[in-house]
Design a protein around this nucleic acid. Structure first.
Length: 545
RNA sequence: GGCCCCUUGGUCAAGCGGUUAAGACUCCAGAUUUUCAUUCUGGCAACAUGGGUUCGAUUCCCGUAGGGGUCACCA
């Protein structure tokens, strides 16, 4: 077989050479240890936690090293393509604080190593495919789906490994040039297969997280180009990461088993392998068993879930960082005020077993993150989220902006910060009592206080109420009335001698709190009163006279 | 089934031949607080298993079990 002729028959219109591509996509001029990496999602319209998980690693590694982080759209599968998926993906990534230096954008490309959508790179793949054909490393395969099924059945019956290799590949491998031309002329569709060596050798592949992996050397005639001329993932990965000059390939561990194919391609093309970094699969626990997170059953797999629940992006980041890098929590404890970007991420500290997504842990991380924010920043984040998901409350927030910020600032001034905000959704609930429009009488008055005592208390309270009183003056008055009514001023006294009192100051303050906020659990009464303003305070209390 | 990856408390995880086997989340108890959210103190709870190697294995090697992945013209 004359491979030059075969290459011309298969790729008559391809004139470029690998050398042209080397020139077109020169090596990047970066610092020695700069990391160039990417995420390569398929535009299926579904953005999941795993996408973010890998993006976080890549983003950190690249930006910590003054490298490049880019977005490549792996759209080689026409069937999975969903309209608008790229926009969805980019906006989700941006929402969660992942920004790309180059790559696909919503309406095009940015950067000089593109195009960044694989379907638009057909010409590039064909140059390499033609080159490989000239080297005798490929052949066209005319096997139909039915024929392949039959082969698989036969292999199954014989308990052999499935696939096109060895004798099973012989029929198409040994086709003469004339036969090939005839088949093509007859309109038979073909795929380009890699001509693998029939071997039992092993190869060692280094993985940055897992160390050396021992795998069997590839002996499969895997597909390089599908019948529509579009490459498979394997071929596209090797070509793209070479010409886009990736130094690191970060991807899920489901790719480990196809490593031999990729290594084989890098070797036959004489290209340097990137540093591989295979990440663990995110898991979920169910009935005491760990299992992979599933798209159908687990809403928390979708990134959209975290947006809808109003879990702020920083919290999701920090949560992922705690899963990803075992020393992040330690660092966070030592540097409570630092930005998470200051944390030095290392591959060495990466976990390799599948981590469980623990929503309790996320909630805790989220509380911490929110407790570190200023009231103004909280207001911005909350407003932005509400505009998307709770427009009624967004309107209130903007109508009463000053009050909302003051409300968010309650318990935030001192050394000990209140930690009652978990996420934006819950924050709306939490803040609702500050506005008459969303105020609700949720909890009933304490049973310990009779109706007449209640009325008497509120009468005295209102008479003595001075909105300008400071916290201690205010509380002194409350204690005074409490005592006069025959309630214990010190909770401990009541605890020791409940028979001597009608109740304790706890019941009294609860009553004020419930009148003011509609609920038994709320922040400091005096502070809340100051935020509400005199008019609202008096109105809410008068209702109980 | 073949090949590959993984295995320390309920969860995430330190450990890298000798430790009372850290820490975080959850849960429980107590303390502080005018409620709550905090904060503090304490508690429950782990090296999957069997063989080696070694004076000594959670740590190194082999097997077994369990979990996961993959075996497409899907990524």
């Amino acid at each position: 077989m004359n491979y030059q002729e075969l290459a011309e028959v298969l790729f008559p219109d391809v004139s470029g050479t690998p050398a042209d591509l080397e020139q077109r996509f020169p090596e990047r001029q970066l610092a020695e240890h700069a990391v160039v990496t990417r995420i390569g999602p398929s535009p299926t319209g579904f953005v999941h936690l795993g996408n973010l998980y890998n993006a976080v690693i890549g983003e950190r590694l690249a930006h910590q090293s003054e490298g490049v982080f880019y977005l490549r759209i792996e759209d080689t599968d026409e069937k999975r393509k969903v309209e608008g998926a790229v926009e969805t993906l980019i906006s989700a990534m941006n929402y969660f604080g992942v920004h790309f230096d180059e790559g696909a954008t919503a309406d095009g490309d940015s950067g000089s190593y593109g195009p960044y959508r694989q379907r638009q790179r057909k010409e590039i793949y064909h140059i390499i495919a033609k080159y490989l054909t000239q080297q005798g490393k490929t052949y066209p395969c005319f096997l139909t789906a039915e024929e392949i099924d039959a082969i698989r059945e036969e292999q199954k019956a014989k308990q052999e490994n499935p696939g096109i290799y060895g004798t099973y590949a012989e029929k198409n491998r040994s086709l003469s040039l004339a036969q090939i031309q005839e088949n093509i002329k007859a309109g038979k569709s073909w795929v380009l297969r890699f001509r693998a060596e029939d071997t039992e050798e092993s190869i060692l592949v280094n993985d940055a997280v897992r160390g050396e992996l021992k795998m069997p050397r590839n002996n499969m005639d895997f597909v390089l180009l599908k019948s529509d001329g579009i490459p498979t993932y394997h071929f596209a990965h090797v070509v793209d990461d070479h010409f886009m000059r990736s130094t690191h390939v970060i991807r899920g561990e489901e790719w480990i088993s196809s490593l031999p194919m990729h290594v084989e391609l890098f070797n036959t093309l004489g290209w340097n392998q990137p540093v591989y970094c295979h990440t663990a699969t995110l898991m979920k626990i169910e009935d005491g068993k760990k299992r992979k997170l599933s798209k159908r059953k687990d809403p928390e797999l979708a990134l959209a879930y975290y947006q809808q629940e109003g879990i702020c992006p920083e919290a999701v980041w920090e949560f992922l960082l705690t899963l990803l890098n075992s020393n992040f929590e330690e660092w966070r404890l030592a540097n409570p005020d630092s930005d998470y970007h200051d944390f030095q991420y290392t591959i060495e500290k990466m976990s390799i077993s599948g981590a469980l997504v623990d929503l309790d842990k996320l909630r805790d991380v989220s509380k911490e993150v929110l407790s570190r924010m200023t009231a103004e920043k909280l207001y911005q984040g909350l407003s932005a989220w509400c505009q998307e998901y709770q427009t009624d409350f967004a309107a209130l927030l903007s109508k009463y902006q000053d009050r909302a910020i003051k409300a968010l600032n309650v318990g935030r001034g001192g050394a000990k910060v209140r930690k009652d905000l978990e996420n934006w959704k819950q924050s709306c609930q939490f803040l609702s009592f500050y506005f008459d429009e969303s105020f609700k009488q949720q909890d009933a008055m304490p049973e310990e206080i009779s109706e007449s005592d209640r009325k008497e208390f509120f009468k005295a309270y209102l008479e003595s109420y001075q909105h300008s009183d400071d916290s201690s003056a205010w509380f002194a008055k409350v204690k005074d009335i409490t005592e006069k009514l025959g309630y214990a001023v010190k909770p401990k006294d009541f605890k020791k001698h409940p028979e001597d009192y009608k109740g304790s100051i706890i019941h009294i303050t609860n009553m004020i709190r419930i009148a003011l906020t509609g609920r038994a659990n709320a922040p400091d009464i005096w502070e809340v009163s100051q935020v509400l303003g005199e008019e609202i305070v008096l109105n809410r209390l008068k209702k109980w006279l």
